[in-house]
């Protein structure tokens, strides 16, 4: 079969070229490795940030305390109004009796103190626990709820939440920026490496063109060479990803600083990251070599 014969020939040529230009290949493999290590770290970091932002966002609730002297049908009215705010997601209602019961279950001291209070003179309030759809608009939503009649106090841990949300957003952007920049640098490096191996084989390419080799036949060995460099270049980053993340996870026991910032479980996370890393290596190698060989196909 002709296509297989050509593919076999291309692979043979590519391997030969990697070995023949060993020092050069090694140089570009190490460059790819270094870049991919940083890319891998950036990917893992950004996934983790994304993960615990999501986790924190899930836990973020607005607690709405209602007036003490509120009637049953008024509670219903407030509920309708909260429901009508567009950013409001799920919400639950807890009557003061339920709050009391919960607190009594939590500790014995509360249990005895609260025992003496009747519903009428209880300082506890009926509450709604509201989750929002978009965390960035939590402040807005809280203000809207506050404006509803018979709502006494609204709490959502204002300052800390706001700061965290904006910090995570900017961290995400910065890591994406770094990853993209590094990939561009890697492509540039591969273009230059393949250019050097091509210029050593300029005459060969010229003759191939003259005797009627199709462009894809000429390109294929170089594209495969780029892929080989990409694959070899991703070996070390993948090892670092797998062993490094395991060690990191174990060392911190699965969370950073507080229980709030949970790390992603190593499995299958690290394998997915490894796949991404090797895919980036291969694609980047292909793109680099394809663009390097292009200019030699004009004769």
């Amino acid at each position: 079969m002709k296509p297989f014969r050509m593919l076999g020939r291309s692979i043979r040529d590519a391997v030969k070229s990697v070995i023949r230009n060993f020092s050069l290949s090694l140089a570009s493999i190490s460059c790819i490795s270094i870049t991919l290590i940083i890319v891998a770290v950036a990917i893992m970091a950004s996934y983790n940030v994304q993960n615990f932002t999501r986790e924190i966002e899930k836990d973020m609730t607005i607690v709405v305390f209602l007036d003490n002297q509120i009637e049953q049908d008024e509670i219903h009215e407030v509920e309708e109004q909260i429901k009508s705010i567009s950013n409001v997601g799920e919400y639950t209602f807890q009557s003061r009796q339920e709050v009391k019961q919960k607190m009594q279950e939590e500790s014995e001291i509360f249990s005895t103190v609260l025992e003496n209070w009747e519903d009428e003179d209880s300082p506890l309030k009926d509450t709604f626990q509201v989750k929002v759809k978009n965390i960035e608009k939590i402040k807005d939503t809280a203000e809207k709820i506050q404006a509803i009649e018979k709502v006494s106090v609204v709490r959502y841990g204002e300052g800390m939440v706001d700061k965290m949300v904006t910090a995570f957003a900017s961290i995400k952007k910065v890591t994406y920026g770094i990853v993209v920049a590094l990939i561009l640098v890697t492509i540039f490096l591969i273009v230059n490496t393949i250019k050097l191996t091509i210029s050593a084989r300029k005459r060969e390419i010229e003759i191939m063109r003259l005797v009627g080799a199709s462009n894809i036949t000429i390109k294929l060995p170089f594209i495969i060479e780029g892929m080989i460099l990409g694959v070899f270049g991703s070996v070390v980053p993948i090892l670092i990803t797998i062993y490094g993340y395991f060690a990191f996870y174990r060392h911190f026991d699965g969370y950073l600083y507080s229980r709030l910032i949970q790390l992603i479980e190593p499995e299958p996370f690290i394998y997915n990251v490894s796949l991404i890393v090797i895919a980036i290596g291969i694609v980047v190698g292909m793109i680099g070599s394809a663009s390097a060989v292009k200019r030699y196909l004009k004769v």
Binding site: R203, I207, T217
Partner: peptide
């Protein structure tokens, strides 16, 4: 087929391989 003044052969290939190269390239 094209023949040039400066032959344009590949120095690392033998006579046989140089001629065969033209056919290998087209599969």
């Amino acid at each position: 087929g094209i023949v040039f003044q400066d032959y344009r052969l590949l120095p690392k290939l033998t006579v046989y391989e140089n001629v065969a190269f033209a056919l290998e390239c087209i599969g």
